Simulated assay, not measured.
Amino acid sequence: MTKLSKKAAPAAKAAAPAASTKLGKTELTDMLGDRAGLSKKDAVGALGARLDIMGEALKSGQTIGLPGVGTLSVRETAARQGVRPGTSEKIQIPAGKKVAFKIASDLKKSL
């Protein structure tokens, strides 16, 4: 019988997880770098700058058109009465703003 060493053997690399339904910032920067021929650092900077610009535009009330994808816009929401879950207490929900997305017709047809 052989003695087992106290050191654990290095674990085998886990198999790659199944394709996720969410595409995160890391995956986007990797894909951007590959398709545009950018270094990882440049791809991170380019995507970060684009997201910052989009956030600033939405905050100022501008609409953002993404050709082939859709349109992001800011919409006003009216004040309304709601119900607090659990207690069924009626509450007043104030007016506000939300970001709305309208999908491009070509993309919608291809889904």
Rank of each mutant, 00 (worst) to 15 (best):
A12H: 02
L51S: 05
T21C: 11
S20H: 05
G55Y: 04
M31D: 14
G96Q: 05
V44P: 01
I64Q: 04
A100F: 00
I53Y: 11
T63N: 13
A12S: 12
R84Q: 15
S5H: 10
G24Y: 00
G45M: 10
T63D: 15
S88K: 15
K108I: 07
L111V: 09
P85E: 01
K41T: 14
G61I: 06
A95W: 03
A12Q: 09
K41Y: 02
A43E: 06
I64F: 04
L107N: 06
D52M: 07
L47N: 00
E76M: 03
R84K: 15
E27T: 12
K102M: 10
T26L: 11
Q62I: 03
A19S: 10
G33A: 07
G48K: 08
A78V: 08
A79T: 05
S88G: 06
S60I: 07
Q62C: 08
A49L: 12
K59D: 07
R35L: 11
Q92F: 01
L72M: 09
P94G: 01
S39K: 10
S20D: 11
K90P: 08
A100N: 11
K90C: 02
Q92Y: 00
R75G: 10
R84A: 15
S60D: 14
G33C: 05
T63C: 05
T87H: 03
A19K: 11
G68C: 07
P85G: 01
L28S: 03
I93E: 07
G68V: 04
V44C: 08
I91R: 03
G96C: 07
K6M: 12
M1C: 10
G65S: 13
E56A: 14
A49Y: 07
T29S: 06
Q81D: 15
Q62N: 15
T21H: 14
K6Y: 06
A15L: 06
V69S: 06
G61F: 04
G61E: 09
P17A: 08
L66S: 03
I53R: 13
T2Q: 12
A36P: 03
K7Q: 14
M1S: 13
L111M: 12
Q81M: 15
A104R: 00
S73G: 10
A46F: 00
K7C: 08
D30K: 13
Q62M: 10
V74H: 01
T63V: 08
A9K: 13
L72K: 01
A46V: 09
G82I: 01
L38V: 05
T26F: 02
A104N: 05
I93Y: 03
K13Q: 13
D30W: 00
T21F: 13
A43H: 04
L72G: 02
A95R: 04
A18N: 10
R35S: 13
G55I: 06
Q92D: 15
A16M: 06
